[in-house]
Amino acid sequence: MTKAPASALISAFLEMMAAERGASPHTLDAYRRDLDDYVGSLKAGKSDPVTAGDGDMRRYMAELGAAGLAPRTQARRLSAVRQFHKFLYSDGYRNEDPSANIDSPRQGQTLPKFLTIDEIDRLIAAASNHSGIKGKRLLAMVELMYATGMRVSELVELPYAAAARDPQMLIVRGKGDKERLVPLSDPARDALRDYIAVRDAFIPSDKSDGHTNRAGQSSYLFPSRGKTGHLTRQMFLNMIKDLAVDAGVAPSRVSPHVLRHSFASHLLANGADLRSLQKMLGHSDISTTQIYTHVLESRLRGLVQEHHPLAHMGKPE
């Protein structure tokens, strides 16, 4: 059994996640935060990742509950710790995996939050009323988000090459560097075409930032002058919160993930099947897509009530 500092073990785990599973920088940052928190708890209990037992893990989970963390957040932390310990066991840092007998926190079923079609229409109409090049960018991003159901990280990191030739299908690189094809609606293509015509205005004038080539062309569809070279998730969140105010929709109900949920829920409500939706959302497991079945259940109830002959028995004409 190899003894190593906790920080070195976490770094080795993150390197494995990046190299073998294609974890994104955002995912790796989240894992590091969760594992740093876990290691801090172990240190307080005079333990470490190599010597920790299931009692240490149960104490850590109890601490999370006492701190008031939601069951979903606790489950995410436990998932990170479990994967970490499986790595330590499989790579020979430990002789056993202490996470094997730890139960996940009980979670109530949380239905995805989504906007109505009318609210989406109001957001798009409000974006259309924004003038200038920023208005064209805003409209293009909202239309793309709702037309494809992309994750916000996928949207802001879209390469310019993916959309430069007025495509009918968009290639999206998702989790684990897996690529998928998603169709573009006509309104999304129109908005994208109008934005690309003014996109050069957003390219930084400093060509030495590592995100532009010698011709001054940015590799990102939505370039910015920030250190990432592209518009950030936080910037887009702020943009659509302001847009919600303009559209008369409560800003607390609007986020990039809500737009993704709205895309999925509206597709299912209008006849799409779960397998097709799974591919468009980039879910590796259909069980993840099944959170949207509440929409299917509602639609099926409506179909039965409207078309099944027994549903109308006993009702006055």
Rank of each mutant, 00 (worst) to 15 (best):
E154K: 02
E154Y: 03
V156D: 06
E157S: 15
E157Q: 15
E157W: 01
L158G: 01
P159Q: 14
Y160V: 15
Y160N: 13
A161F: 03
A161K: 13
A163R: 01
D166H: 11
D166M: 09
P167I: 00
Q168N: 11
M169T: 14
I171M: 12
V172H: 01
R173G: 00
R173E: 12
R173Q: 13
K175W: 12
D177N: 15
K178R: 15
E179M: 11
V182Q: 06
V182R: 06
S185Y: 09
S185T: 15
D186W: 13
D186V: 15
P187L: 06
R189V: 08
D190V: 13
A191L: 08
A191S: 11
A191K: 06
A191N: 04
A191E: 04
L192V: 03
L192W: 00
R193P: 01
R193F: 08
D194S: 12
Y195V: 03
Y195I: 05
I196P: 01
A197H: 04
A197D: 02
V198P: 03
R199E: 01
R199V: 02
D200Y: 13
A201C: 01
F202Y: 06
I203Q: 02
P204C: 06
S205Q: 03
S205F: 00
S205I: 01
D206Q: 11
K207V: 12
S208T: 14
D209Y: 07
H211I: 07
T212I: 04
N213Y: 06
R214W: 11
R214K: 13
R214Y: 11
